[in-house]
């Protein structure tokens, strides 16, 4: 399969600040790549470069087989961009927004109108279609923005933090819409700071930090990097901690760690739910009183923490914007 997006050693500097520091990326046709990283990691900069909006200082990139510099004009016909801030005109109605974009893609008068109506229907905006966007909710604006990115049926779609700032319900709605889209074969580059979002939507995830990719793979591969499952238990009394440790030793695939103060025991295991049942049986046999027990799989939060030594959301208050 050919790569719909290919970036090699992209470098972008803003004065002394290095926004992209040799970014490599390859997204096969028809797949979703999640670009995951905290604010200021370089996600938006990467999207701007790949969508021809930003000149860069080094490396090269092609999208849909076209060089982003030499083929920029032609490339813009083939891509759709839906940004972090819904770039729709508040004073225009939903229909007028989409119709304008259609006209600027040179679809022609009638086809442009038809396409606008079609998208409004698909994105559940028919009722609001002829009202100015000013009165739309945040979720509706994002849907309209995404619709605008789809007007010319792009082969590659860039979604820059499509759900940032949305309430949970609107976010779920957006996810449904995006999933439906990709089922149609569009290649998508999705940036997000939400691990859950990348986990759910992306075929492959590139973790990006300080302008470069620090890990890449499927969600499962990345999770495997930080280790498999673990059993987490909280026992009723401190005396039981040692007993628990001894009882569960046969199940552990690595060292059991203990937090004495919290009466907390963590046992690395493999084998899924069966292990959990076995553990409960063993503890019951020893008459150990367990307050809480659970099988935990690593989340992408764990992945990020392991890879960068800090939590993904930690950087959110960083002053570095626009990256």
């Amino acid at each position: 399969m050919a790569d719909a997006i290919l970036a090699e050693g992209l470098v972008k500097r803003y004065g002394a600040v290095v926004a992209l520091d040799g970014l490599d990326l390859a997204v096969p046709e028809g797949t979703i790549m999640g670009l995951l990283g905290p604010n200021g990691a370089g996600k938006t900069t990467a999207v701007r470069v790949l969508t021809t909006l930003l000149e860069f200082d080094g490396g090269n990139a092609s999208v849909a087989g076209l060089d982003v510099v030499k083929g920029a004009r032609e490339l813009r016909r083939k891509i759709g961009l839906s940004g972090q801030y819904a770039a729709v005109d508040e004073n225009l109605t939903g229909f007028e927004n989409l119709d304008m974009v259609g006209r600027l893609y040179h679809l022609g008068k009638q086809p442009s109108r038809d396409r606008a109506r079609e998208l409004l229907e698909r994105f559940d905006l028919v009722e609001a279609a002829d009202r100015p966007v000013k009165g739309y909710s945040g979720g509706m604006r994002r849907r309209l923005d995404l619709a605008a990115a789809l007007v010319a049926k792009p082969v590659v779609l860039f979604l820059d933090e499509p759900t940032t700032g949305l309430d949970p319900r609107s976010r779920l709605g957006m996810w449904d819409v995006i999933e439906e889209l990709v089922a149609g074969g569009t290649t998508v580059l999705l940036t997000t700071q939400y691990l859950e979002e990348a986990d759910r939507l992306a075929d492959k995830i590139a973790v990006i930090d300080h302008g470069r990719v620090i890990a890449e793979g499927t969600s499962d591969q990345l999770k495997a990097q930080v280790g498999g499952e673990r059993l987490e238990l909280t026992v009723a009394s401190a005396r039981d901690v040692a007993l628990t440790k001894a009882a569960l030793a046969p199940l552990a695939i690595a060292d059991i760690s203990v937090d004495e103060r919290g009466n907390h025991v963590i046992v690395p295991v493999s084998g899924g739910a069966d292990v959990l049942v076995e553990a409960v049986r063993l503890l019951d046999g020893e008459a150990i009183k367990v307050l809480d027990v659970g099988l935990r799989r690593p989340t992408l939060d764990d992945v990020f923490l392991t890879l960068t030594g800090r939590a993904a959301e930690e950087d959110l208050t960083d002053g570095e914007s626009g990256a």
Partner: peptide, 17 residues
């Protein structure tokens, strides 16, 4: 400020349009 110029710039139109 509202990102509308970004949208225009991502469209296949002349820089002067």
């Amino acid at each position: 400020q509202k990102g509308i110029i970004d949208r225009f710039r991502s469209l296949p139109i002349a820089r002067s349009a």
